[in-house]
Design a protein around this nucleic acid. Sequence first.
DNA 1: TTTTATT
Length: 352
Amino acid sequence: MESQVGGGPAGPALPNGPLLGTNGATDDSKTNLIVNYLPQNMTQDEFKSLFGSIGDIESCKLVRDKITGQSLGYGFVNYSDPNDADKAINTLNGLKLQTKTIKVSYARPSSASIRDANLYVSGLPKTMSQKEMEQLFSQYGRIITSRILVDQVTGVSRGVGFIRFDKRIEAEEAIKGLNGQKPLGAAEPITVKFANNPSQKTGQALLTHLYQSSARRYAGPLHHQTQRFRLDNLLNMAYGVKRFSPIAIDGMSGLAGVGLSGGAAGAGWCIFVYNLSPEADESVLWQLFGPFGAVTNVKVIRDFTTNKCKGFGFVTMTNYDEAAMAIASLNGYRLGERVLQVSFKTSKQHKA
DNA sequence: TTTTATT
């Protein structure tokens, strides 16, 4: 299915170049593997135990989306012994796990030049095979993977596919050379462009999803509601309280002592975020809350000695409506394995 | 007319 390239040994040593590998440094190219097409629901623990069954693992990582915590369907395994890495490829590559056939290969050295090298191709002749598509593109560089999407029922090509090159430059050249061109004997020209980057898309998709799902659950069809009314309903959800008068929001009555922060951090609405993972960092909070509006400050509360997150943090937002929308949307949101609790920070300290 | 390949 996929091309079997991937990783491969490093190129020949340069004449007169420095001799590498004589100082006892680890040669990652022989121990570090990339694993692709993992089932979506596989956990880090399952991933580790599967590959740990081959031999001693130096480190391994199931790659997850920064924001949602969802598995991205691939991971890395670094073995202590190169022989185990080789054994893992021989025994686990092609293994069927649920609906997926996993791919295990040597990881290429990580570098900026291999990122964003994935192309989206459309307008392909329905008769074109994956191999033919690869032949068309291989003149521009080394192909890491290719895929043609097919109709799930009939199995016939949808005329749409992906090509991942080893280097971004190669992908750029392929766009220049093939976008708008007709393959030999084809009636229509093909479109070649960079594929959507899933990691960038997530924020937007998350937002859209949250808005739509909250609005539907709590306010009914959007076209029957005004902005004001929708926000009111979202607030009902955020507080778990029935609110009878929308005017209460505008006046912000009933909210005394809640959320509004003064002090050195500047004015704004302070939001309490609970059930963050020990690995959570500030960037996660920026990414989660940023899409809802102006965020002036985020803070992850960490243990002094371990520097791990103690499970909660704070976010300050400038505008009340945006803060309320963020709370309504993100409270109860599942972040990885955890369900977030999000609310305005309450001031328990005040003694009247 | 968008699958989940770079920590």
